[in-house]
């Protein structure tokens, strides 16, 4: 019963919205707004074809590689900067400067510097996804509990052990919050990076359909992005639940107390 109720709550609103959409498009024919069934058909024929391999897979590859690079860079730099006051003083003004520049504006520059290839797109995405992870990691490292740090000192947790058993898990709630933010930013930048000087990818396909006035096909691409967003979020939440199980338990326990 609980499962049924959950499913109803999950899919209830989308179902209602589709019904409303259906009602409004049933008799009137607006060239720019396709009917739901027409869109569903288009979606299947467009994306469940070789386009899945020539456009969807490359896009997802770019996104996942960029997220992985951002994660490794963000966490590694974040820990180094979070642990060292000197590094913070040295880098903070520079980081604020780079962060303030929207990475999309760098696309023309990067096109010249790197060229029309995946490295350029990945650079654009990483330049956007890095910040939430980096800044959250710094904050997470800095907000480690004083008593816990003293405990680690007393039991002589040093170097790599200290990072593995104290710093990383201690900062993980904020790191996860940063990753969550990066997922959203990453999807946006993926599409934008594929809109310029690109030959494949979801973003390229959508722009291409738009230019050819293939309206239902264009909508189906937008629909696909929404679905990818939902899937990413579901996978992320499953991972988060595993990684931060202790954190939710701790929060619940201190709320009870």
């Amino acid at each position: 019963m609980i499962v049924l109720k959950r499913l109803a709550l999950w899919f209830g609103l989308p179902a209602i919205l589709i019904a409303v959409w259906w009602a409004f498009t049933a008799q009137g024919v607006n060239f720019f707004v396709p009917k739901p069934d027409k869109l569903a058909n288009t979606f299947v024929t467009v994306w469940f074809s070789e386009k899945f391999f020539t456009d969807v897979m490359p896009s997802m590859g770019r996104l996942l590689i960029s997220l992985a690079v951002s994660l490794v860079l963000g966490v590694a730099l974040g820990i180094a900067i979070g642990l060292s006051r000197t590094l913070r003083w040295l880098l903070e003004p520079l980081l604020e400067f780079i962060r303030a520049v929207p990475s999309t504006i760098l696309i023309p520059v990067l096109l010249l510097l790197i060229g029309i290839n995946d490295a350029m797109k990945i650079t654009v995405i990483v330049l956007g996804c890095l910040w939430p992870i980096l800044l959250n990691t710094i904050e997470g490292v800095r907000s480690l509990d004083e008593v816990l740090k003293n405990t680690a000192l007393v039991y002589r947790l040093r170097g790599f052990d200290r990072i593995r058993y104290l710093v990383l898990p201690g900062a993980s709630p904020l790191i996860m919050a940063g990753i969550r933010h990066s997922l959203a930013v990453g999807l946006i930048l993926l599409v934008v990076s594929e809109m310029f000087a690109s030959t494949d990818g979801i973003g390229y396909s959508i722009i291409n359909f738009q230019n050819r006035i293939a309206i239902p096909e264009m909508w189906s691409g937008i629909f696909l992005l929404g679905i990818i967003g939902v899937l990413l979020s579901v996978v992320f939440q499953a991972i988060q639940k595993r990684v931060l199980g202790w954190y939710y338990g701790l929060k619940e326990a201190s709320n009870d107390g």
Binding site: D145, E146, V147, L148, N150, T151, Y165, L166, P169, G170, S172, W246, Y247, L250
Partner: peptide, 9 residues
Amino acid sequence: EYSRSLFPW
């Protein structure tokens, strides 16, 4: 501070 001195993870 026992609750802050044990590793909650």
